[in-house]
Design a protein around this nucleic acid. Structure first.
Lengths: 153, 153
DNA sequence: ATTACTGCAAATAATTTGCATCTGG
DNA sequence: CCAGATGCAAATTATTTGCAGTAAT
């Protein structure tokens, strides 16, 4: 079902997983596939839905999705991101284009953008505090243009 | 018990609250007091604890704390901030010095800092996307110096 | 054969909500 | 007096965990 994807080091994901003493189960494979196919950030529920879509075999347990996501994050294959509402979203780490999130407090909408100033920020924070910023998790909150105009709460 | 604090517009908090058709109850007053006294970001539980400290009268319900915090956020007197773990922290909005949060994904520690590059970021995002960044909610995630060195997960 | 992984159901944790009662203005 | 606020307990939501059975290597 998953067709030999490769990671940053050129090894297949399957190899990477087995090399860490873990197993490539059907469910893990499906989750990997879903993550790879889904565009942006997805919740565990969404991933579970996608995975349960091709309902040829039995539905997988939600807890299995959670456990796998945790494992994959641990392995660095997936990144987790908690936006402003106790909901965690996951994303395939190899997604090439780094992007950032404008999160509107007014309407709740999210927009993904590239922000040059973040490079400067990364450098500054590293120099001043020795802290290595992970831009993939950067949520920029505020008010979108629309919400600033009409205070449409 | 609370001694006529004033908000940005110079009106007393009490006036501001009443003007919005709300009432200044004893519990609201205590919560306001706690928020004002507490230094940084506090969870609902922490605020509840502080408020229940001066145990002269009955303990207030946790739900009352939550409801009040929601109301105060709505009124703009308090800001809410969700860091990376489904936990919301609240803070008195009038806290003068704007600061930002370095959130280490390794050890989970938070450090508050000032980052100049964020001013540039604010300008850029506003110009390019018309989005008004709210720096009070800016969480910068990554790895602190310690965790980068020894990968003490 | 091991032992990691899965499913299921029950357990948490944080926050929300329904409702009868109380109280500030 | 009466709408907004409170207390309490039950309900949600998102996620985690224990355990016995299943399957990947």
């Amino acid at each position: 079902m998953p067709h030999d994807r490769t990671n940053a080091e050129g090894a297949t994901i399957a190899q990477t997983i087995r090399a860490s003493g873990r197993r490539l189960t059907i469910q893990r494979s499906k989750i990997l596939d879903a993550l790879h196919r889904l565009p942006g950030h997805s919740t565990a529920e969404q991933i579970h839905a996608v995975v349960s879509e091709d309902q040829l075999d039995a539905e997988m347990a939600l807890s299995t999705v959670y456990r796998n996501l945790e494992t994959l994050v641990e392995m660095g294959l997936v990144t987790a991101f908690a936006d402003g509402g106790g909901v965690i979203t996951y994303e395939w780490a190899a997604t090439e284009t780094p992007h950032h999130h404008l999160l509107c407090d007014g309407c709740g909408h999210t927009k993904e953008v590239e922000v040059e100033a973040l490079d400067a920020l990364t450098v500054e924070v590293k120099r001043e505090h020795g802290f290595a910023v992970d831009l993939r998790h950067m949520a920029i909150r505020g008010q979108c243009a629309r919400c600033q105009a009409g205070q449409s709460k």
